[in-house]
Structure formats: structure tokens, C-alpha cells
Write a protein that binds this DNA or RNA. Structure first.
Lengths: 204, 204
DNA sequence: GTTCAAGAATGGTCTGACCACTGGATATTC
DNA sequence: GAATATCCAGTGGTCAGACCATTCTTGAAC
């Protein structure tokens, strides 16, 4: 036997759960079978079931309520992965990959948003940049709004995921002026300028 | 009692492990205490210890070797991204979103690759386009090679996941000529042309 | 109808057992 | 002495069963 790659029980359980969700078309808020039921159905011990459930709970995909059950959760980045911060992410290679992807996604968003932009959105963006309370979160709010304009939920989710990871390394906040210039670029539909400004943020 | 927020044992274990790693300055490859030792030291059952370990194993932070022990792993975000994606991608998602993101990623890759390209890679790309056996898989092979040139595993992983998922919807294969033109664009470092060609593939 | 107590279902945790794999110590053979 | 085979302690993998804490339902008592 060269490399049988025998999967652990909890990994198989994970796959079963994934399929279960798919087959039954479960939506966030819906209840999963109880640990005991899963145990019986999958022919695995309750401990193994729990190992699997705990793992995806940590990922933020499910939620357990004592005495009630296990529920599918509306996945939101920014719940769990702060764990990673002290764990690692110190490797420069990892950091660079993260920031590069983040920058690319933001460039993509800006370009797409440029095509959908209207005066109301421009105003909203300007507000976000100048609002006081978003001082420590300007970048996040600004781009979240921008991504929303793109009308592509998948793109938004990917970005949020990457953004979350990035935070465990470094919180990126830049000068107000850059964002205002960016808005100008979007308003003028000047793609070159947009790409350049975002590139500059990341000093690449 | 308003909101006691009693943490589960496995979450406390997680925190202990995190601290342990920090205090002992563990690096990837180093070994963690055995499950039984942790159990005794933290005054928790082995099951609880395992729930915690399985969770961060799934995250990709550690690696367990049967009979040997548990080891700290060199963490790469794409591991987690790929995990989450199997769930995220299954959430309601339109074909358009999927293909738009795919296109954007491919545009990103082409642009990045443009900056790293050399003669050998050009030749390799041309081969892929003209090879017979990759006829039904040209797009995938071509872009996979292109993404590799970008030297960003995270970006590659994201694209691969989306590409795979796209296949369940529709298989995209285009005319040989488009790829050859794309190679030309990359060779000439003509970004506008690159973006245009890829955009055309997706008729946007 | 309202209230309250009992009970069923469910997650949370622990104990202890046994198996399978690994690596080093020890014994055996040459 | 060197190579090999064997054994064994340590470790992860899995399981069965127990008990507790919480929640919700059910039905009896009022």
C-alpha cells in the first residue's frame, strides 16, 4: 500500500453534513439533525460527530444551542479567525499573498463599481470617508460599500474573507485623501487612475 | 444574569494552546504536548482536548501524525479559504456572479503574469494551447499555468475553487485563437489588450 | 384559560476502554 | 561488531456509556 490516504472519521462526517445541507437545501437558521441522530445514521460515535461539529462551529458555519440543537448559520466573516492572529500568519510569503489578493479584489471592485455608479452612491462614499465614527474603520466601510455597488455577492464574500485574514496581520488604514481621489477616479470613470491609487495604497 | 457567555471547554483549550505556542515560541514543525498530557494539564477530558485539536486541524494550523504526535503546521490561508468555499459557494448564487468573478480573477492573473513572464513560459503556454490532449481542458490548463506564474498560491486556490464550481454549471472552452492572442498580449505587455480579450471570452 | 411540574430531547463533558501506528530499546542472529 | 528481528511504551483514532444542564413540550391542577 503506497498511500491509502485513509480519511479520519470526523472528516467523513464533515462531508456527510455538507451533503446533507445540500440535499435538504438547508438555509441559515435551519436545524441539523441531533448529534445522537447523526451518530446513528452515520454509524459513528458521538465523539466523532462532535469533533466534526466543533470544527465547523469554529469556522463559523454552524451554531449550537444547548438544549435546542445545532443550526446552520449565516456565514459571516469576522467571527472566528481572530484565532489565527497569534497562531501564525507571520510568514512574509503568506502576508504578501494576502495583501496582493486583497489589493486585486479591491481594484476589481472599484472598476466594476465605476460602471454602476450614480450620484447618490458618490455622496454616500464621500460621507463614509469624512465621517468621524468610521475613523478606525474607514477602509473597511468604504470598500464594503463599493463592493455592494458591484452587485456581486460572491465577490463581496471573497473580499470579506480575505479582509478578515489580513486583519490578523495588520490593519490597513490610509489617508483620507486617497479615498477622495479614488472617488474622483470612479466618478470620472478613469480606470487607470483607480488602479494606480489602489496600487499605491499597497505600495506595489 | 444577563449574558454570562460561558465558554465551552474546547474554546478554553484553544486559548491555552494558543498561549502555549506563544510562550514556548513554537515554530512550524514543532511538536505540541500529547493529547493525554494536555488533558491532565488543563484539567479537561481528552474528548474536549480533541474537539479543540480537530477544530484547528481543520483550519490547517496543526497536523497530526498517528503514533507520533501533533505538530504545528506552516499555515496558509488558502487552506481555510478552500474549506469555507465549499459551503459559501453552495449558498444561492447566480451563474452570472460566478462567471464574473472567474473572469476578473483571470484578468488579474494575466496582468500579474505579464509582469513575471519569460520566454520559457511563453513557449510553454503556446504548447498548451496547441496540444491535442488538452483539447477538452485547454482553458483550465492554460490559466492554471498562468496563475502559477503569478506566484500567489492564495490567488490560484481561489480561482481553482471557482473554476471547479463553475464546471458544475457550464464548461467553458473557447477558440484556440483567443488564447494565442492573449499570449501575444502578455508578451507585448499590452494590458488593455489582455483585459479586452478575456472580457470577450465572457461576452461582457 | 393560566400556571406549574414532570419528562423528553438535546448539547456539554467526562471516563475508561481498545485499536493502530511509530520509534526506540532490546534481544537475536550472523 | 553489525545487521536484523522483536518487543514495548507512547501517541493518535475511535468507541460506548454515563451523567449533567438547558430547553421545550406536555399535561395535570387550579
Amino acid at each position: 500500500m503506497t498511500n491509502a490516504e485513509k480519511a479520519k472519521v470526523y472528516q467523513e462526517v464533515l462531508e456527510h453534513i455538507r451533503l446533507f445541507i445540500e440535499e435538504h437545501r438547508l438555509s441559515p437558521g435551519d436545524r441539523l439533525p441531533s448529534e445522537r441522530d447523526l451518530s446513528e445514521e452515520l454509524n459513528a460515535s458521538r465523539s466523532s460527530i462532535r469533533e466534526a461539529l466543533r470544527a465547523i462551529e469554529l469556522l463559523g458555519l454552524i451554531e449550537t444551542k444547548h438544549g435546542e440543537g445545532t443550526f446552520l448559520k449565516n456565514y459571516r466573516p469576522y467571527h472566528t479567525v481572530s484565532l489565527l492572529s497569534t497562531f501564525i500568519l507571520n510568514e512574509t510569503r503568506t502576508k504578501n499573498e494576502l495583501f496582493e489578493v486583497k489589493m486585486l479584489l479591491e481594484q476589481n471592485a472599484a472598476k466594476l463599481a465605476m460602471e454602476h455608479i450614480d450620484q447618490t452612491s458618490i455622496t454616500r462614499l464621500k460621507e463614509i470617508v469624512t465621517e468621524q465614527h468610521s475613523r478606525n474603520n474607514r477602509h473597511f466601510h468604504f470598500f464594503k460599500t463599493l463592493f455592494r455597488l458591484c452587485d456581486n455577492d460572491l465577490l463581496l464574500k471573497i473580499w470579506q474573507l480575505i479582509e478578515e485574514f489580513s486583519r490578523t496581520v495588520d490593519i490597513a488604514e490610509y489617508h483620507k485623501e486617497a479615498y477622495l481621489e479614488l472617488i474622483e477616479g470612479i466618478q470620472d470613470k478613469d480606470n487607470q487612475k483607480i488602479q494606480y491609487i489602489i496600487g499605491q495604497l499597497y505600495h506595489l
